[in-house]
Amino acid sequence: MHRFANPARFLRLSALLLPWTAGATVILLIAGLYLSLFGSPPDYQQGDTVRIMYIHVPAAWMSLFVYTNMAIAAAAGLVWKHPLADLFAKAAAPIGAGFTLICLVTGSLWGAPMWGTWWVWDARLTSVLILFFLYLGYMALVNAFDDPQRGARAGDVLLLVGIVNVPIIKFSVDWWNTLHQPASVVRMGGPTIDSSMLIPLLVMAVGFTTYFITVVILRLRAELAQRKIQTLRFSVAGDGATG
């Protein structure tokens, strides 16, 4: 019975949560934009292009965070057949793809003046591009079936296979010689970045996370409404047949 109760509980909890996550997103992103555009110094080597970091790095973190969450949901969907798990992955995919696109394009805009090239086929950049294609492939696959259940199953398998790409992205800068710099925040021995730049970066990252929670709740509610539409259409058609 809990299978049927959970979506109802989600609707109740998410309605309570939504104003808080939406409010936090607005405040954090305004504060983050202020800090990254006015409240932080230009880099001594990179000048003002370092401000691209406050978008690029949180977007990159989100691209991995969202994918990992989707893969966990896929595992839960396959093992326990939890109805919300598949809907979560479906609702989160466009947001993850959006963050990955932001990561790729801002990286390119940062690379052009600092590296002297918009793009190189090195390990980090290529593995992130593959992540972007995984998102797009998942979205296409899930919507390619007439039966949403079968689409969700196929999508879950793709997500679980694609999870190998996540550690490859994370460690690509250590395993191979790449143009991309190694990690300076999430690394053994603590961040090597000055707090005047670390704080705006973290504020933006938390803002992106609350943005994700807000939009994924909206999209999940829409997915649940679509489910309800299907059952209502079915019962209205039934009414018409008997009446």
């Binding site: 934009l33 000048g47 003002d48 292009t49 801002t106 940062w110 939009v215």
Partner: peptide, 26 residues
């Protein structure tokens, strides 16, 4: 932006476009 306006502003613009666009569509 210290001469880098052509790179910094499009980066922020694209991020705003994608995030606001996703919110509106959702």
């Amino acid at each position: 932006m210290g001469g880098y306006a052509a790179f910094v502003w499009p980066a922020y613009g694209l991020a705003a476009l994608v995030l606001i666009g996703l919110l509106v569509v959702s």
